[in-house]
Design a protein around this nucleic acid. Structure first.
Lengths: 243, 243
DNA sequence: TCCCTGCTGCGCACACTGTACGCACAGTGG
DNA sequence: CCACTGTGCGTACAGTGTGCGCAGCAGGGA
């Protein structure tokens, strides 16, 4: 969808490339890809569409990026930089870990494709920002006095990733419906209750949830905080001097 | 890829449909889809390929399944039936929860696409087996005496899903490399150590891991069990009578 | 002034994807 | 015998990622 219209091929008629365009570059491509991902979701990102948004052809992108997967990897690493992990010197490791976890969740909800891609990649991503993130987490738990900080990280991160990814998927579904979260829940409720028929505990839980006056976002916040506290409680028991 | 070859159209030459073929049915389609998913991964499943394996055209499947997403939902629910959750009557809730978690992980590693799809779907899936699974978990934690069993579930499940999905992704990557896990790690190590340069804690962790004599599968088992214990410890603190 | 080399963008093409549409046939009920 | 319904399939459409080779530009010698 370049600005230049189709015209008969002629050396004289050919225009110069606009020099004021933001040049195609890896950074610009990644930035635009993130914008598309945030706005339209992961399956809406195609190389053609991305190229069009950059006033370029689809295959031009491949001069700067080896493959679409590599582009995703770059986008992940770029976005991971938004997560803040308090410095290790902080006296209260628990507050620091809580802040890091909440920052992760906030980032994952701001970029709903993040956790899905991250969870599906595992240790294969070695981008600088991801490494820096891991390093700061390791520093935090080491300073806290954990004998094996990586075990602590390998407990906390799966929880945070698991929760964030289901939550992001849910919010994506809601957003696609065009309704508010409460309205979407209300519309889904009958089907859920029907599916829960014969399952007493589930039916009870649904009934209790229906009476809940709190708004869904608050409930999700509380749920995440609750589970996080559980995990941190469990970790605290592993600190030397507590056993 | 039907058995009948192309031939000049003629009423006389047209063959009958083989009646001994296993009839195309929703159950057969789902079963075959799971086989493809297990063998070749999630992005290898295409309707055409699936149809071919069933001696049918691609679009024939759509008589039994509304859309590919629906097929995935059916496959997930089918596979979820493999997860065993001990009955609520079990005296030791902790052993029961541990068994359920391990069963989940085993199923997720047997079907490496499971957690990714599950984590990306959230509460939207309401299949009977998934409902039964949730019900039994709820029964378990209710019988254990938790005041709000759903909070316990919403803590445990994200951990289990998060851990299983990264693990499954890792194993998929390893499998695709054609090497053993140990060999793959050895080949990845230089890149990882280079990426960890300047990050002291990470570099230490890598160095320690390189000296580790245990085989990777054992380490993964231990890591999962460790985090699971952490979560269950944290949950145990929420049992009335412990506060 | 010329050519040569290397880099960037792009048009085309290939092999694929999910799935809508409408026809041809089998079995069933009237 | 006819009508109807359910099933399979061939064709087609609008996409997808990406390999290949060409066209222009920048800079560096001769």
């Amino acid at each position: 969808m370049a600005a230049k219209a189709k015209q008969i091929p002629s050396v004289w008629a050919r225009e110069q490339r606009e020099p004021d365009q933001p040049a195609l570059s890896r950074a610009a491509i990644v930035r635009e890809a993130i914008a598309v991902l945030d706005a339209d979701g992961i399956e809406a990102l195609s190389m053609r569409k991305l190229g069009a948004r950059l006033n370029a052809g689809a295959t031009s992108l491949y001069r700067h990026v080896a493959t679409k997967d590599e582009l995703m990897e770059l986008a992940v690493d770029e976005v991971v930089a938004e997560i803040t992990v308090p410095p290790a010197a902080a006296a209260d490791w628990r507050a620091a870990a809580t802040e890091a976890a909440h920052s992760f969740r906030a980032t994952a909800l701001r970029h709903p494709w993040l956790s899905a891609v991250l969870g599906q990649a595992g240790l294969a991503y070695l981008g600088p920002n991801l490494m820096a993130f891991s390093e700061r987490l390791a520093a935090l738990f080491t300073a806290a006095g954990f004998p094996e900080p990586s075990s602590a990280i390998d407990t906390l991160l799966p929880y945070v990733i698991g929760m964030s990814s289901t939550e992001a998927a849910w919010l994506t579904t809601v957003a696609r419906s065009g309704e508010t979260e409460a309205a979407f829940i209300a519309r889904l409720m009958p089907a859920a209750q029907q599916a829960a028929a014969g399952h007493d505990h589930l039916a009870d839980a649904y009934a209790r949830a229906a009476d809940e006056p709190l708004d869904p976002a608050t409930i999700r916040d509380a749920k995440f905080a609750y589970g996080l506290d559980v995990v941190l409680d469990g970790l605290a028991l592993r600190l030397p001097g507590k056993a």
